[in-house]
Amino acid sequence: MSVITAPRLLSRMRRREHRRVALVTGLVLVLGLCAAGLLAPLLAPHSPVAQYPGEELRGYGGRFLLGTDDLGRDTLSRTLYACRAALLVGLLGVGIGATVGSLIGLVIGYVGGRLDSFVMRLTDIGIGFPVVIVGIVVVAIGGPGPQAVIIAIALYYLPAFVRILRGSALQLRARPFVEAAASMGVKDRVIVLRHVLPNALPLFVLQVGLALPDAVLLDAGLSFIGLGAPPPSPTLGDMLSQARSYLDVPRLAIVPGLALCLLVIGLNLLADGVRDVLDPRESSERAR
């Protein structure tokens, strides 16, 4: 590598500074929106489903801070509750898919052989299915709702996590401490749980972090095409879908859309920041 000169060192430090700003911005956005979502019952000035007759399509300000929709429901309250739902669905979907996928990946990576190649062919098939189709099929079988979106997101991420953690297990299997444990007669189950799993954890956390913003987007997208929680429960995707019928009232699209953008941007910045800490290389691959 090249010699580090003073100006280069300076620019590197400045770059770090710049990255820390990004990390802190992400943290503030995510914590803020998480708090807003968690405290939605306390913060929301109105019920998210209550309709106020005669108050339809109000503008900003007054009794309804961010206006009301076509049914006279408070946009602010609905957005707060929708953020809560988006975070919950994204977290659960990625959490379930990542956990199950990672465990499968660790086992097949450690065991290897026929089982490994068989499961890998299955992930080939799984990765080929676009998420919208997974969502549609899940909804077609079990009906629409948050659970359908969670299952769709989990199924979408499952094969990707199988692959990533399998790769990690393959590498770890060749490490001396695993070989030592095996030669001492430690059971395979114990080796996987005690030695392989803990060493694969940082990678797992990193990939979950990278998957989360996309999962929130997927949740919104799937509820946008009507696969999410049925009305009147507020979801960001559904609110945006309703806004399609009132394009002359842009406020209905802007408020939930901005909340969604801020949430996704915040999660992205946070994930990138965490990645810089855990894995300082310029680029590390995303799960999907």
């Binding site: 990004a22 997208g221 399609r244 953008c261 996704v264």
Partner: peptide
């Protein structure tokens, strides 16, 4: 950062 955070269908609406 902004482009990756903006959902495509929302951008479409706008």
């Amino acid at each position: 950062t902004v482009a990756l955070g903006v959902p495509n269908f929302w951008l479409g609406l706008i």
